[in-house]
Design a protein around this nucleic acid. Structure first.
Length: 274
DNA sequence: CGCTCGGCCTGTGCGC
DNA sequence: TGCGCACAGGCCGAGC
């Protein structure tokens, strides 16, 4: 479900609530989501740990704990992290509960159960290949126009597939890729290497601006996504193409089309994206 | 090495 | 209304 702006929003709505809290106990109702170490070790090692702070890298959330431990959470398609006051009940899809020292709880909820959790020392993060191989993120200092240009110029794959590849650029997903391409006026099936310098700059700027706007709007809520307080984002009201199949393009009025590109449902304007 | 595709899961919404 | 099928903010591993 969530992409960089949604995970960033969860981080921002959670960091002040959990920082300084100690995890008293853990309830696991679906143990296969715990990928490292074993669920028993996961519980035993987490018990009594204090949460120092919270980080985000790409679509991963990293809870920095005392004793050099890191709790890593990936929400995949439908995962949610909720901060729940002790008075409120769990939701139906709660899979892991972290009981905190103030009586409140941190819930990991997930309908499709594709989410993943890990616990390991901070110097063993290489065990998580998706995290270890993550490329530079939009809006970060290492996501330069030179870097972006260099990864496009040597690849014949469709531009959409390149933008979705987390080892090349960290944090983009299906919504923000479709939006970036629409804003830049580039067709999702173009070979990456076929983009000229002017198109590369346009796409680079579109990616950065749409991610910044997504964060500013608190993410995009289509169905599952909520922040750590259970609130929806508002970027769905500003989308150019995603979820707008059959509706008029905001730029030219042509009908937004939908087809599968790079294995994903893809929305685009057949008139203004070349 | 680079890339594409199927599989992992459950729920929902659409067309017939 | 009921049913079946396609599809859903993601990623990994197999196979070419």
């Amino acid at each position: 479900m969530p992409e960089l702006p949604e995970v960033e929003t969860i981080k921002r709505t959670l960091i002040n609530k959990v920082s300084g809290r100690t995890i008293k106990s853990i309830n696991i109702s679906l143990s296969r989501l715990i990928k490292w170490p074993t669920p028993e070790q996961f519980k035993a090692q987490l018990r009594g740990q204090k949460i120092v702070t919270l980080h985000r890298r790409g679509k991963y959330l990293l809870f920095e704990l005392t004793d050099n431990l890191m709790l890593i959470v990936h929400l995949r398609m439908t995962g949610r992290l909720y901060y729940m006051p002790s008075s409120e009940p769990d939701d139906k899809y709660t899979r892991v509960v972290f009981n905190l020292d103030n009586g409140d709880r941190l819930l990991f909820s997930d309908t499709r159960t594709l989410g993943t959790l890990y616990l390991m020392p901070g110097d063993e993060l290489w065990r998580i290949s998706g995290l270890f191989n993550l490329g530079p993120e939009p809006l970060s200092a290492d996501f330069t126009i030179e870097y972006f240009s260099s990864i496009l110029k040597k690849r014949q794959s469709k531009i959409k597939a390149i933008l979705l590849n987390q080892s090349l650029i960290g944090g983009l997903g299906n919504i923000y890729v479709d939006e970036s391409l629409a804003i830049a006026g580039i067709h999702p099936e173009r070979a990456a290497a076929s983009l000229n310098d002017e198109e590369i700059v346009r796409l680079y700027e579109s990616i950065n601006s749409v991610i910044a706007k997504g964060i500013e709007d608190g993410g995009t809520t289509f169905r599952d996504y909520r922040d750590a307080e259970g609130k929806s984002g508002s970027h769905q009201y500003h989308l150019y193409v995603y979820g707008r199949k059959g509706e008029p393009c905001r730029k030219c009025g042509a009908t937004i089309e939908y087809k599968t590109v790079a294995g994903r449902g893809t929305h685009y304007c057949p008139f203004c994206q070349h």
